[in-house]
Amino acid sequence: MNQILLGPPSLRRSPRRRGGRAVVSSALVLLSVVGMSACGKTIDIGDSGDQPATPSASGTQAPNSLGAPSAGGDNSALQVVDSTAKDAGLNGNGGTVTGTVVQETPPKWVQMTAVAAPLSSPHLINVNQATLYRFDKDTADPSTSNCNDACAAKWPPVTIEEGGKVYLAGVDPENVGSVRRQDGNLQITVGGWPVYRFANDVKPGDLNGQGVDNTWFAVGPTGDKVTQ
């Protein structure tokens, strides 16, 4: 049986706290440090559970994602890359918006990075340094999002276009998958948990969504719930 190579150990370890710096500084430093040590393996992950593994021109294809297949047996895919977007020569944010701005179309690519400060455990941010969250009323097995309509306006799902790439720093590619939402969009999952932003997080490093309704918490690099 073929073994999927997940990249160097540096990407499988959670970043360490680097003193009492501000959240934004910590994020920037970790983005830079982890990015330099990353390699470029790519894993294609589809969101249908009944597709066989086949070789891919961009890397090794996993049998299926952590997301549940849609009712129509959708075979769309995303690509999970265990290096940073910067290493791939990309600038900008791939189309990821911030704050209350509506994400009208899914981003072409998404960056997820694990940072240590200021919470008790590493948690994920996106390329705009916005905190990423998970919802206790969702499920991870099977992956299901129960945040739609008005909820999704307040907690925008982290979506990606069909076949888009997810770039990682400090996150094991094996933990990343996708789930088909009610509106048909492809939402990224970590450890099976659908991942979201919070519309009221305006500045990089904001954690205004932490603990809201005692059901929303920052998501860790394995999909774990991070609390203070």
Results as ranks from 00 to 15, higher is better:
2 N>C: 02
2 N>E: 12
3 Q>A: 11
8 P>Y: 11
12 R>P: 00
12 R>N: 12
13 R>A: 14
14 S>C: 05
15 P>A: 11
15 P>D: 08
16 R>W: 07
16 R>P: 03
17 R>I: 09
19 G>N: 08
20 G>H: 11
22 A>F: 02
22 A>M: 06
31 L>N: 12
31 L>F: 10
31 L>I: 02
32 S>E: 12
35 G>P: 05
38 A>G: 15
39 C>P: 00
42 T>D: 04
44 D>R: 14
44 D>F: 02
46 G>Y: 00
46 G>L: 01
47 D>R: 02
47 D>I: 06
49 G>S: 13
49 G>Q: 11
52 P>I: 08
52 P>D: 09
54 T>P: 00
57 A>N: 08
60 T>S: 13
60 T>I: 13
61 Q>H: 02
61 Q>K: 09
63 P>K: 06
68 A>P: 00
69 P>T: 07
73 G>V: 05
76 S>Q: 13
76 S>V: 10
83 S>K: 02
86 K>P: 00
87 D>P: 00
89 G>Y: 09
93 N>E: 06
95 G>W: 04
99 G>S: 15
99 G>D: 14
100 T>W: 08
101 V>H: 07
103 Q>G: 08
104 E>L: 13
107 P>Y: 10
109 W>E: 07
112 M>R: 02
112 M>L: 15
112 M>S: 02
114 A>Y: 04
114 A>S: 14
114 A>P: 03
118 P>E: 08
118 P>I: 08
119 L>T: 09
122 P>R: 04
125 I>S: 02
125 I>W: 04
129 Q>E: 09
133 Y>V: 03
135 F>D: 10
141 D>S: 15
142 P>D: 07
142 P>R: 10
144 T>K: 14
145 S>I: 04
145 S>C: 12
145 S>T: 15
147 C>D: 10
147 C>L: 13
148 N>D: 15
148 N>R: 11
152 A>R: 08
161 E>I: 11
162 E>C: 02
162 E>D: 15
163 G>I: 07
163 G>K: 09
164 G>T: 06
165 K>P: 00
165 K>Y: 10
167 Y>I: 05
170 G>C: 11
171 V>K: 06
171 V>H: 05
172 D>W: 03
174 E>I: 10
178 S>F: 01
179 V>E: 03
180 R>K: 15
182 Q>D: 15
182 Q>H: 10
182 Q>C: 00
183 D>L: 08
183 D>A: 09
185 N>V: 06
191 G>Q: 04
192 G>K: 03
192 G>T: 05
193 W>P: 00
193 W>E: 04
196 Y>G: 05
197 R>F: 12
198 F>K: 03
199 A>P: 01
200 N>C: 00
200 N>Q: 13
201 D>Y: 06
206 D>C: 04
208 N>R: 12
209 G>I: 08
215 T>H: 07
215 T>M: 09
216 W>I: 11
216 W>G: 01
217 F>C: 01
224 D>S: 15
225 K>S: 13
228 Q>C: 00
